[in-house]
């Protein structure tokens, strides 16, 4: 269900009198169960593409289909529902709601989805254990390291079993060890649960994990190749 199709996506920004082209007629297909890395320098359009795929940002023109569902024409509320049930987001930083504990952060989305309390608790406990945070459930984000915070974000993203996880520079603020742990986690989830991952990065260590590497520059896709994934050296 998480096949992604983009056709002729365009998006421009205006900044300080200059027009910046973030997406320039981008067309792209991503199959379900893929593990894709978008790479390129800052301003190449990676984040814009990622946001567009998640329905956070609306392209000026072009069409996006996620799991057979056209995104254009959906209301803000419908897009929110789509993300709530089908898409997980992991950002570079500030991924968590600061006033909630790790467990509550994971449970929060389920609560909004209406998952019963017992089920929610069990699931939260399980995913937090899965990402290696057993015992830290009661801590608030401020009491967790950057890597731990990112893992809580992943736990939250996968707790609701989304078909697609969009991660925007997830390792940018992490040391190598934490970054490797996070990427291993992504790979495991991709393999065991078939979750589709689209990760934007300019971290070469991360690119090694991908099975498909898409290079971007100035809003254009400049390369698109399959590769044999290899873990980074820690």
């Amino acid at each position: 269900m998480s096949d992604i199709a983009c056709r002729e996506l365009c998006k421009t920004f205006h900044q300080g009198g200059e027009t910046i082209t973030a997406l320039d007629h981008v067309s792209l297909d991503i199959e379900e169960g893929s593990f894709v890395c978008l790479f390129g320098p800052s301003g190449s359009g990676k984040t814009t593409l990622l946001n567009a795929l998640g329905g956070l940002d609306t392209p000026d023109s072009g069409a996006i289909t996620v799991g057979g569902q056209r995104l254009d024409g959906l209301s803000r509320g419908e897009l929110a529902d789509l993300r709530l049930h089908n898409i997980g987001f992991v950002f570079q930083a500030y991924n968590l709601i600061t006033v909630l504990t790790a467990r509550e952060n994971v449970e929060f989305i389920m609560q909004v989805q209406g998952v019963p309390a017992g089920e929610r608790r069990a699931l939260a406990t399980r995913v937090l254990e899965e990402v290696g945070l057993a015992g830290l459930e009661g801590r608030r984000p401020g009491e967790l390291s950057g890597g731990q915070q990112q893992r809580v974000a992943v736990a939250r993203a996968i707790a609701t079993s989304p078909a697609l996880v969009l991660a925007d520079e997830p390792t940018a603020n992490l040391d190598s060890r934490s970054a490797a742990q996070l990427m291993d986690l992504f790979v495991t989830l991709n393999k065991e649960r078939g979750v589709t991952f689209v990760i934007s990065t300019h971290d070469a260590r991360v690119m090694g994990y991908a099975r498909r590497l898409i290079g971007m520059r100035d809003g254009l896709i400049v390369s698109d190749e399959q590769q044999q994934p290899h873990a980074m050296d820690v």
């Binding site: 998640g54 956070l56 803000r76 509320g77 929110a80 529902d81 789509l82 993300r83 709530l84 049930h85 898409i87 987001f89 950002f91 500030y94 991924n95 968590l96 709601i97 600061t98 929060f108 989305i109 909004v112 939250r156």
Partner: peptide, 13 residues
């Protein structure tokens, strides 16, 4: 930023 995050997580307006 946190409100943006909540939107990204799928909280309706």
């Amino acid at each position: 930023r946190e409100i943006g995050l909540m939107q990204a997580l799928g909280m309706r307006p």
